[in-house]
């Protein structure tokens, strides 16, 4: 009771689309496709995310770990950098209507370094307050609509991940969070990594980033819920 009152005394911390636009550090940003003549060379990228294509240095976001080596000071040409958080991509053809109002989410750590998990955890903080958007974390996949997988799937976690997926009721969707989950990232060549998530279970939403910031995660959740407002913090948008 005491804490309840103390909590009411605090100012409202929850971000709104308006306040979030004035803040820095919500998103680290990521390299943007750059004309080849101004771009950093392909071989500077440790995860081979840079590919030249028709005179444009393209970025394969499923590989990019945002290490900023393509912007280091010693380079003559640097990659362009884009801010923002509309990073989520749909990789399956359809999403069920059943998710329009509320989704329950189970997070599976399949070899995560802790950063993606912490960003997911941060979503539950008053700053992002994902509950108000109708999203809730559940303790078991049995009650989950969406399985969020982070980390390159390690050999030891592969079966467990399959088990979690199979335990979910239909309709179910899988969201792969973080570059590691999309391609293995910097761990892709490790012998103990079984491969990206889509090699184990079908992925419907991919959110690249190392780690993707909370707003990018929210963007993914909003996409799965069938709405994709300009700012994922906008609670009023309904399809």
């Amino acid at each position: 009771m005491l804490w309840f009152r103390k909590g009411l005394d605090q100012p409202v911390r929850t971000l709104t689309p308006k306040t979030s636009s004035t803040l820095h550090g919500l998103s680290p940003g990521r390299p943007a496709p750059t004309p080849s003549r101004d771009a950093a060379p392909e071989d500077v990228c440790p995860t081979h995310a840079l590919k030249e294509h028709d005179g444009v240095m393209d970025v394969d976001y499923t590989q990019c770990i945002q290490c900023r080596l393509c912007r280091q000071q010693s380079l003559k040409n640097k990659m362009n950098w884009e801010e923002g958080f509309h990073w989520a991509q749909m990789t399956s053809t359809s999403l069920p209507d059943a998710f329009h109002h509320s989704v329950h989410v189970r997070v599976v750590d399949a070899g995560d370094c802790g950063a993606c998990l912490n960003e997911l955890h941060q979503l539950a903080s008053p700053v992002y307050s994902l509950h108000r958007l109708g999203i809730a974390f559940t303790p078991a996949p049995r009650e989950a609509d969406v399985l969020v997988v982070t980390g390159p799937v390690t050999v030891s976690m592969k079966e467990t991940l399959e088990e979690a997926f199979q335990s979910m009721p239909t309709p179910k969707r899988v969201m792969a969070v973080g570059t590691c989950a999309l391609s293995g990232g910097i761990f892709s060549s490790s012998f103990a990594v079984a491969g990206p998530v889509d090699r184990v279970i079908p992925v419907d939403i991919a959110i690249p980033g190392c780690p993707p910031p909370p707003l990018a995660l929210l963007d993914g959740f909003r996409l799965i819920m069938g709405a994709r407002p300009e700012n994922p913090l906008d609670g009023r948008v309904r399809k």
């Binding site: 820095h24 950063a115 008053p126 780690p211």
Partner: peptide
């Protein structure tokens, strides 16, 4: 209540790091 308050402050620190180093977790 205090857990959420502290967590919000942690988010402030993450934003501070993100704004000044280009990465919320000081990677790279």
């Amino acid at each position: 209540v205090p857990a959420n308050l502290i967590q919000a402050l942690e988010e402030d620190l993450l934003q501070l790091s993100g704004a000044l180093t280009g990465h919320r977790y000081l990677f790279g």
